[in-house]
Structures are given as C-alpha cells and as structure tokens.
Design a protein around this nucleic acid. Structure first.
Lengths: 145, 145
DNA sequence: ACATTATCATTGCATATGCAAATATATAGC
DNA sequence: GCTATATATTTGCATATGCAATGATAATGT
C-alpha cells in the first residue's frame, strides 16, 4: 500500500499547520515574538559560537536568504539581535543574540516547551514521544552545512 | 524532560519545511499544480458529494477563507474546478472538480504517492509508517465541522 | 413579521516571501 | 598578479496571504 506513505506525509502537513497556528498566536501574545522569529533566534543560540551568517540561518530555516535579511531588521531594531562582522571575510554578516535577546528567547522557549508538552499530554508516554521524535529525525535530519 | 516534546514539535516543523519544498517543486514541474492547489482539490474530491464550500475548504486547509477565494480563481480559469450554487442557501459557493480537474488531480496524486513512498524508502517498514501515521493522527486528527 | 445576530464570500490593505539582479568580496586557475 | 568564477548580502519586483470591513443571505428571538 503506497497510501500509508501519503497519509503520513499529509499528516505531517496537517500537524504542522495546526501547531504553527496554535504556537504563533500564543508566543506573539505572550512574548511579542512570532514563532518564526523564535526559531531564528533559537538557531543562532544553538549554533557553534552562538552566531550564524544570514545564509546559514536561511538554510536552517528553509527560507530564502533575503527573508533572513528582512526578518533580522526589526529584531535588530528592538535590540534582540546584533550584527557582527567576520575578521577574515568581509562579506559575512553574523547574527548574534544580545543579552536581552537571549533573555527573551529563553522565556519564549520555556513557553514553547510548555505548549509542546501540552501537545502530547494525553495518551502519550515518554517513550511514545521519543520514538516519534526519532522517526521525525529520519525524515528530516539536521543537515547543517 | 519537557525537551523531548519540543524536539518533536521542532521536528515536525522541519519535516514539513523539507517535504513542502521537495513536493512543491516536483508537482509544479510535472503537473503544473502547486502542492497547495493539489491539496485543495484533494479535499474537494474526498468531501461528501465531492463538493465543499469555500469556508469548509478554508478550515481543512487551515487558511483564511479569502485565500480560498483567491486560490480558486486561477483553478477555475484553467478548468480544473467549477463553482456550484446551493439550492437552499444562496450564500454558499461550492467548489467542485471538473472532469479534467479530477483527471489532473489523480495524476498529480499518483506523483505525490510515489514521492511519499520515497520519503520512507530507506529504513522504514510498513509498520513503522503506519505507526508513525497513527501518532500523527493523535496530534492532528481530521476535525471537519 | 421584524429586528437582531450569525454566516458566507469577496475586496482593500498591509505584510511576508521567493526569485532574479546588483554589489561587494573572496577563491581558484593560470 | 590577473582574470574568471563563486559566495554573501541586499534590493526590486511579483505573488501570496492574513485581517478587517462590506454586502448578501440566513437564522433566531420576540
């Protein structure tokens, strides 16, 4: 049956739509950060040296580099992130977190953690969640390059 | 650990981005239909009576009704879908599939099936896929209303 | 029957985002 | 060292999409 595959893929699309909807509203209301802004900052925080060029950030977010350029403008304006040059390569413009940006990110991520736990609250064991996550990793491995 | 929950949620976001990217390009190139257009038509095909009002379609697609209005315009223009009125309620504008729309949908869905199977080709048993899908159904049940 | 409220579809407006071009800088080949 | 090519970022333009307002119709309450 090839149908189980497409059912699963359609299920991912639907789950994504529902979760994005739910999380974006809550995060924006509570922390003033869109979900996508949180993810941008989270990737910066987790990157080696806590900095990322706009192109690398675009790869992680699966968006066009121009989108990163535009997303970083308001975040820099409100002091969440900063721009840092590279000593060797003048083309690079790293994104870094400011102290208050890191603080805000941690608060927002705590909310995301709580909301994520809510998603799995009913009928999910810890093993269910971890098994589910490891299946997701097979489909979408972290492929930073 | 609340982290397994957020890992899983972030995994859904990432898997969605990767799959949407991959599928949209291929479907558009081969069948001239964007992934979102295919999904729109698929929901129509699967609806009771093979017709759906714009509002019901919007709920299934998790988009604003105005987006459905706009997406249906070019699809109607190229003869994939048609508009049908309701005998009792003059507000309703059903979306239906034309014969050639149904034909195109079936071809495109066959491609989606093949691409979906590719996603799970390595390291997945049929039970893995079905188990994964049933976990997704817990997160995102079909809740048509 | 009438007035109020709810629902469906559409439109105006603002924002978001991909693509291609432009610019600046770096790298590779010779 | 010079030229050609590649990479990083930004900008212009076109398209996509959410939100709020509008108009049409239906349903509800009295």
């Amino acid at each position: 049956m090839t149908d189980s595959s497409s059912n699963a893929v359609l299920g991912i699309f639907r789950a994504n739509a529902i979760l994005e909807e739910r999380f974006t509203g809550a995060l924006s209301a509570v922390h003033g950060l869109a979900l996508k802004e949180l993810l941008l900052m989270l990737y910066v925080q987790r990157a080696p040296g806590s900095k990322l060029s706009r192109v690398d950030l675009a790869k992680r977010l699966h968006v066009n580099p121009s989108t990163v350029t535009r997303m970083t403008l308001p975040l820099e304006k409100i002091g969440m992130i900063a721009r840092e040059a590279d000593a060797r390569d003048a083309r690079l413009a790293y994104v870094t977190l400011t102290p208050s940006g890191e603080e805000r990110l941690n608060e927002a991520f705590a909310t995301l953690n709580r909301m994520s736990a809510d998603v799995f609250q009913d009928r999910w064991s810890e093993e269910d969640i971890e098994g589910f996550d490891s299946l997701l990793q097979r489909i979408a491995p972290h492929s930073y390059s």
